[in-house]
Design a protein around this nucleic acid. Structure first.
Lengths: 114, 114
DNA sequence: AATTATACATAAGAATGTTATGTATGGTTA
DNA sequence: TAACCATACATAACATTCTTATGTATAATT
């Protein structure tokens, strides 16, 4: 686990990236996926995730679809058309940001994904 | 300029990195150096920087030395012995974190600097 | 003379997270 | 079968860390 100040600010972008790739995901699934992909180094807490998802919905970036698994409820989130455009912007901003960080901390910009 | 949520959490580490490289720097100099190195993409505000520097001093990570340039005051900051150890930890954590971000956003871990 | 750059500082408020708590179902194990 | 852990949602109090605004003052440029 990172001393989580570094992770601050990246949550929304991580969610958008996953939704863009997977099409639709539910909250708990997102927490598990991120844990998997990062070898447990990033663990999204529910107290951070759910308010973020609700905010994305309120902004029209995502819409929800509720499914019933047995008697349990699952709330799937997927990008809207506007959300896809937003995600694209945020992801290219993240790519640029990571390049800048590389310059600062490694002295190299790294590969560019035009 | 990045929609600055991404920059959140990186300020302290950026300062430690610069101090480690330069030996000593003063506040205004740090803001200018970061602006230069990042092509204006990251602009540290004074409201964020000075409290951070004061906190680092209170934690014993840095010590200060006041210089007089004409009638103006400059406050130089440099790492303590403990601060150097702390900086080393934070920088390797940042390197690891950037690798994790690359996996999430680019699908590649990037080079490892052992 | 006015403006901009240098150089410090602090305080109110916003944003974004942590930690704690609550509710409930379903599967596994002692 | 009782206890425990995993799944799955949610919210609220609090902490941290930044933005924005403000204040003070000297030095250089237009």
């Amino acid at each position: 686990m990172y001393s989580n100040e570094l992770v601050r600010g990246t949550l929304k972008t991580i969610v958008l990236k996953l939704l863009k790739e997977e099409g639709k995901m539910y909250g708990y699934e997102i927490t598990q996926r991120v844990k998997e992909l990062t070898d447990g180094k990033i663990q999204i807490t529910e107290g951070a995730l759910y308010p973020t998802l609700h905010a994305l919905e309120a902004e029209g970036i995502v819409v929800t679809e509720t499914m019933h698994i047995g008697r349990r409820v699952r709330k799937y989130y997927k990008l809207t058309t506007e959300g896809r455009a937003n995600a694209k912007r945020k992801l290219s901003e993240m790519a640029d940001f990571l390049g800048t960080m590389r310059i600062l901390f490694e002295g190299t910009p790294g590969p560019h994904h035009a």
